[in-house]
Amino acid sequence: MWFPELSRSRLRTIVGDEAARGFAIERLAPLRRLTADSGDIPLSTLAAWLGCHGVVDRAAVRLGVHRHTVTARLTRIRSILEVDLDDPDTRTELWLALKWQGQGLASSD
């Protein structure tokens, strides 16, 4: 696909709805299992943090919690998903998974 074609379409359209949903389900499954015990805190924390471009202080304000709480939650998310949240590829995958499952990711800008 050429860039002009890509820029006029949405990535999910290119990937396909079924594949996008499957990716989101698989990628976020460990956090969804955790959600049973802790509400949507892991998913909402990850969504807020990614939506704030990885800035803990902004995510804390968005969530209405202390920044150390966000940091602790992110440490747990890292451990559960066994990922490096500092890696841009990982962040992109998680952002897409959250977006494709319908989690709000509005930018803080």
Rank of each mutant, 00 (worst) to 15 (best):
D84N: 14
S108C: 07
R78P: 04
T75I: 08
G39N: 02
P4Y: 13
I41F: 10
T35L: 09
D40W: 03
L46E: 02
L85T: 10
H68A: 00
R73C: 10
L94W: 04
F23I: 00
G51D: 01
Q101M: 11
I14L: 11
G39Y: 12
R58M: 11
A72T: 04
T45V: 01
L28M: 01
S44Q: 11
L50C: 06
R58V: 06
I77S: 02
F3H: 13
G22M: 00
L96P: 04
R76V: 14
P88G: 04
P30Y: 05
G51V: 14
R73D: 03
E26D: 05
R33W: 07
L96D: 00
D57R: 09
S108L: 07
R91D: 04
R73M: 05
K99P: 11
V70S: 06
L43I: 12
T69Q: 12
R27Q: 10
L46F: 08
L46S: 03
R10G: 07
A29C: 05
S44T: 15
E26T: 07
L28D: 01
R27N: 03
R73K: 13
G54P: 05
S38F: 15
A47M: 04
L34W: 15
E82R: 12
L94I: 04
L11R: 02
R33C: 03
D109E: 09
E82W: 07
R62H: 10
F3I: 06
E18W: 15
A47N: 02
R58C: 08
G54I: 08
R12F: 13
A60W: 13
A36W: 11
T92R: 14
I25K: 15
A48D: 00
G39A: 06
G16V: 06
W49Q: 01
R67T: 11
P42G: 04
W95R: 05
G16M: 01
R10S: 10
R10D: 12
E93P: 13
L98N: 08
L63P: 11
L105W: 02
I77L: 05
V55R: 09
H53T: 13
D86G: 08
H68D: 00
T92M: 09
D84I: 15
A24S: 10
D37H: 15
T69N: 08
E26Y: 07
W49K: 06
V83T: 04
L105F: 05
E18N: 10
V70P: 11
L74A: 08
E5C: 02
D86T: 14
L94A: 01
R91N: 09
P42L: 04
P4I: 08
D37K: 14
L34F: 07
A24F: 05
R73H: 14
F3C: 03
V61R: 08
E5G: 05
R27W: 11
L34Q: 12
E82Q: 14
V70Q: 03
L43D: 00
L43G: 01
G54A: 00
A19M: 11
T90V: 15
D37Q: 13
A36F: 14
G104F: 14
E93V: 05
D87R: 06
L6T: 15
G54M: 05
W2A: 06
A60D: 02
R21Y: 13
R27I: 02
V55G: 02
D86S: 12
V55D: 07
D109C: 15
R32E: 12
T90H: 08
E82P: 03
